[in-house]
Structure formats: structure tokens, C-alpha cells
């Protein structure tokens, strides 16, 4: 066990000493303040536009355009870009060793390939969770600090208002679900990383899969209706269910199971490739 912890620690050290690990954090440090400040300066014009026809007949009291609303909007807007940032690091975990020519060096250590593999996978998962929660902390913290507190208004097929007392734990739940979805993306990048020798391949491969599957998921084509729900992209919006009322726990469990199965398959496939791999570099 201590070997496993030590291995993971060193993998973490290696990962967090690489500059590319901080690229994602730098992007959110840049995008989130811009988004929140722009929203603050805009003063809720988006919300006014979206509720324009309603405001002819109704008056909204309270502060619907608050930090929670902006944090929720930000989460919806950034959800397309996050997989790219995740795959930057996850795709480099194994391929990075090949690129740097350090595969042989790490594999001649008196630990099994499986242990090294597990340590690298745990590192990928930790990075993913850390990244998603950093985004959450940054967006919620900044948005609430600049735009204040209040109930959360969600504009979708219907108007749903969640009381302020419920909003915080729903965001925590949403970011837990989001992490779970992103672990699947990271696992796919990790899988691609296991059979290539350059980290660009896994990034492009992962994004290709995400884009194609997302298109199949969202296109209203009858042909795709039967396969749609088997794709992980169909279940990746699981975080949105944390803001439903009542929370559809059954649907969430189904999505958690699908995403978990996808992650597991990608991880096992990567493990098989990694353990059987003929290291030539």
C-alpha cells in the first residue's frame, strides 16, 4: 500500500511539475473573471432579454441576476471547452513518457507495470477532480462576490426558481457529477495515451470522440435515437440534474452507471495495452 501511495505521490509530483498541467488552470483564471466582469457590466441584459415577453405581464421581485445565476450560466457555457483542457493532461500521462523517452526508465523499477499504471490513472483522476472543483470555486466565488446572493432562477423548458438555502449544496452536487463526467473524458484520453507516443494524438482523438458523440447526442435525427442513450456524451449533462426539482435520482444513477462503465472500459483497455506494450524507446 505504501508503495502505491509513494508511486502516486511521485506521479503527482511529475504531473504538477509540468507546465502544461497549469494551462487549464490558467485558462479558467483568465476566462472566469472576464465572463463574470462582463456579466456584471452588462447588468443582466441577457436575463432581461430572455424574460422580455414575460416582463410585459409580470414583475420579478428580488435579485434574479445574481452570482448563482451567472455561475450556473458559466457552467453551461464552459462545458464544451473543459474536455479539451482535461485531455491536455490526461492524454499526456502515458504518451508523455514515450515522448520524453522515459518509458524504459520507469518500467525497469522494481514495481509492476500495473502499479505504475494505477498510480498514473489515480493522478489523472485527482487532476480532473481538482480542475473541475477549481473551476467551481473560482466561478461561484467570484460571481457571488461580484453579483451577490439570492435565489437561483433557471430558464429552460420552464422557469424554475430554487431557494437560496438549496443553491449551495446543489452546486456542490453538480460539480461532483461534473467531475464524474470529466473522469470519463479523462479515461478516454488516458486510453488514447496508452498506444501513442505523442500527447497530441490523445488530445485530438479525445476531442474527436467527444465532438462526434455530442453531435449524435444533440442532433434530432431518428436514426440516432436508438444509440444516443448508450453514448457517454448523452449522460455528461448529469450535472444539470442537480438543479432539477425534484432531483431525478433514478436518472442520475443510470447516468452515473453509464459514465462509470465507460471510464472502466477505457481504463481496462488502456491497462491491457500498457501491460502488453513492447517498449522500444
Amino acid at each position: 500500500m505504501s508503495t502505491m501511495v509513494r508511486l502516486t505521490y511521485y506521479e503527482m509530483l511529475k504531473t504538477f511539475l509540468k507546465k502544461r498541467t497549469y494551462l487549464g488552470f490558467a485558462v479558467i483564471l483568465f476566462i472566469v473573471p472576464i465572463y463574470v466582469i462582463a456579466m456584471k457590466l452588462e447588468g443582466g441584459r441577457f436575463l432581461k432579454m430572455a424574460t422580455q415577453s414575460l416582463q410585459l405581464d409580470f414583475i420579478f421581485t428580488g435579485n434574479p441576476f445574481n452570482g448563482w445565476f451567472v455561475a450556473h450560466m458559466l457552467m453551461s457555457s464552459l462545458w464544451v471547452q473543459i474536455p479539451i483542457l482535461i485531455s491536455f493532461v490526461a492524454g499526456d500521462e502515458l504518451a508523455g513518457e514515450a515522448t520524453a523517452g522515459t518509458y524504459r526508465l520507469i518500467l525497469i523499477r522494481p514495481v509492476s507495470r500495473t502499479r505504475i499504471f494505477i498510480a498514473k490513472y489515480i493522478t489523472t483522476v485527482i487532476y480532473t477532480v481538482l480542475f473541475v472543483f477549481s473551476l467551481g470555486l473560482m466561478s461561484v466565488g467570484l460571481a457571488v462576490a461580484l453579483l451577490g446572493n439570492g435565489d437561483l432562477i433557471i430558464l429552460g423548458r420552464e422557469i424554475l426558481v430554487l431557494p437560496q438555502s438549496e443553491v449551495m449544496w446543489r452546486f456542490v452536487l453538480a460539480y461532483c457529477f461534473a467531475s464524474w463526467g470529466m473522469i470519463t473524458v479523462a479515461s478516454i484520453a488516458f486510453f488514447f495515451s496508452s498506444f501513442v507516443e505523442n500527447a497530441i494524438g490523445p488530445i485530438v482523438g479525445t476531442m474527436g470522440v467527444v465532438i462526434v458523440f455530442t453531435l449524435i447526442t444533440v442532433l434530432p435525427v431518428e436514426l440516432f435515437s436508438t444509440i444516443r442513450e448508450y453514448l457517454f456524451t448523452y449522460h455528461m449533462n448529469i450535472w444539470q440534474k442537480a438543479f432539477a426539482d425534484p432531483i431525478p435520482w433514478h436518472d442520475i444513477l443510470v447516468s452515473v452507471a453509464y459514465l462509470g462503465a465507460n471510464s472502466l472500459v477505457a481504463m481496462l483497455a488502456a491497462w491491457i495495452i500498457f501491460t502488453k506494450k513492447d517498449i522500444l524507446s
Partner: peptide
């Protein structure tokens, strides 16, 4: 109002 309410105009 501290909370969001919808009133007829």
C-alpha cells in the same frame, strides 16, 4: 424582496 417572486404587472 430577498427572494424571487413573480407578480402580475
Amino acid at each position: 424582496s430577498p427572494s424571487i417572486a413573480m407578480m402580475p404587472r
